[in-house]
Structures are given as structure tokens and as C-alpha cells.
């Protein structure tokens, strides 16, 4: 899932400073699950924003809405009536959500309340870690199911760098060295021979290097 994290109140207030009526929009999917932008966070942030404005004597009216998914226009359309009543929207969705709202309602500015951090998983309640870099050409089958693109600090493809020490990455002793993990896992699977094959230079054109990505499936297109 996509992991997000709320920006500071100060930063958010700067963005929406000057607007009198603001709609705070939550998303019921990834960011609800990672506790950053669901209905509760929307209510909490709204309350804080109202108070901060009241305290400074700024008139600020806030309306709230949380929709199923901010990355689908059909759900965003549900916001139309509310959007017509406001001067700006504040999205608590991921970057895709913010932009989908902006594309749907060109008449008002849309601001991000979250920093979209990464694609990852919940390690335990309150702890999330990165797992995938959306590189566009998955190699998990050769690396024991552990992604060196997302989890090796240098995204190395053919084994660790010289900084791997006691299983930890040289950038920070709290970070596991992905290549150590890969080695351990392949060993446990009795697949160490996979490491002998050289992984060729990766085709980064399907990743960000190829510019903004687009995916079309004719079979499901209407």
C-alpha cells in the first residue's frame, strides 16, 4: 500500500492561508489503512485548523468529506456539491489523489496535506517500511523475494557494496543490508546458485527514467 504522513500544521496552514472556505478530503483506501488520511484524521486536522484560525482571528470555514478512493474520478465526483461551496481543497490522499481532485475540479486549487512517502507494508501497528520502488521491471524472482531496488540504499543489482557490515547497511546501523537479507534468504531456500548469474544492466526506461509512465490495456478498455 501507499504510505503517507501528515505534514506539519504550520506547513498546511501556510498553504491554505488566505482562503476562507476549505474542504478537507480524506481517502478511504491506503491512507486510511496507514492511519494518515482517513475520516478520523480528516476530522482531527479540521478541528485543529479551525482552532488555529480562530485563535489568530482568521475566519475559516471547513467542510469535511472522506471518499472511498481519491484516485478514481467516480468517487471524486461525489465531492462536486461540496467543492462548489469552497475556495480551496486540502487532500489527505496520496499524490495521485491530490492530482485527481485537481484534474476533476479545475476551478479551485488543491493542496496536499500529506507527504506521500513510499510503497510499503505495516511491520507492526504504527511502523511501516518500504518494500517496492515501482521500478517497472520486477526482479524479486532472482533475489529471493527481497527487493534490492527499494531496500538496498544504492539499488545494487549484483551483490552488496563494501559497506555491508554485520548485516547492516553502511548508511545507518538501523537499516538492514538488503543484500545480506537476500543472501540469507537464498541460502535458506537452497538457491544460492542464483547469485552466480549476473543480473544485466536494468532497463530503467520502464521506471522513472523513461518519463511519466502510462499503462494501457486494450482488452479491458471500453
Amino acid at each position: 500500500m501507499i504510505i503517507g504522513e501528515r505534514k506539519s500544521l504550520e506547513e498546511i496552514r501556510k498553504m491554505i492561508g488566505g482562503y476562507k472556505r476549505v474542504l478537507v478530503v480524506g481517502c478511504g483506501t491506503c491512507v486510511t489503512v496507514c492511519l494518515a488520511g482517513g475520516e478520523k484524521e480528516v476530522a482531527t486536522l479540521s478541528s485543529a485548523l479551525r482552532m488555529a484560525a480562530k485563535k489568530d482571528g482568521d475566519g475559516l470555514e471547513i467542510s469535511e468529506a472522506t471518499i472511498e478512493r481519491q484516485c478514481d474520478i467516480e468517487f471524486i465526483e461525489e465531492l462536486r456539491e461540496k467543492v462548489e461551496q469552497v475556495d480551496a481543497a486540502l487532500s489527505m490522499g496520496c499524490g495521485a489523489g491530490v492530482q485527481t481532485i485537481a484534474e476533476t475540479f479545475s476551478e479551485i486549487p488543491v493542496y496536499p496535506a500529506l507527504n506521500t512517502r513510499f510503497i510499503g507494508r505495516t511491520e507492526e501497528q504504527g511502523v511501516w517500511t518500504e518494500r517496492c520502488a515501482a521500478c517497472g521491471d520486477c526482479i524479486l524472482h532472482v533475489t529471493g523475494g527481497i527487493c534490492p531496488i527499494a531496500r538496498c540504499s544504492k539499488s545494487l543489482l549484483n551483490g552488496p557494496c563494501g559497506g555491508s557490515k554485520d548485516g547492516k547497511c553502511e548508511i545507518n546501523p538501523d537499516v538492514a543490508c538488503a543484500w545480506q537479507l537476500i543472501y540469507d534468504r537464498l541460502k535458506a531456500l537452497d538457491q544460492l546458485d542464483k547469485l552466480e548469474e549476473i543480473v544485466p544492466v536494468k532497463d530503467w526506461s520502464v521506471s522513472r527514467d523513461g518519463g511519466p509512465r502510462k499503462l494501457i490495456r486494450e482488452d479491458v478498455r471500453l
Partner: peptide
Amino acid sequence: DKCALCLTCIRS
């Protein structure tokens, strides 16, 4: 309808 099955309640 609202539950996103985030598992927070189950864990807590």
C-alpha cells in the same frame, strides 16, 4: 461500509 479492514482495531 466504512471499514477499510486496516486491522488497527484487531491489533489494539
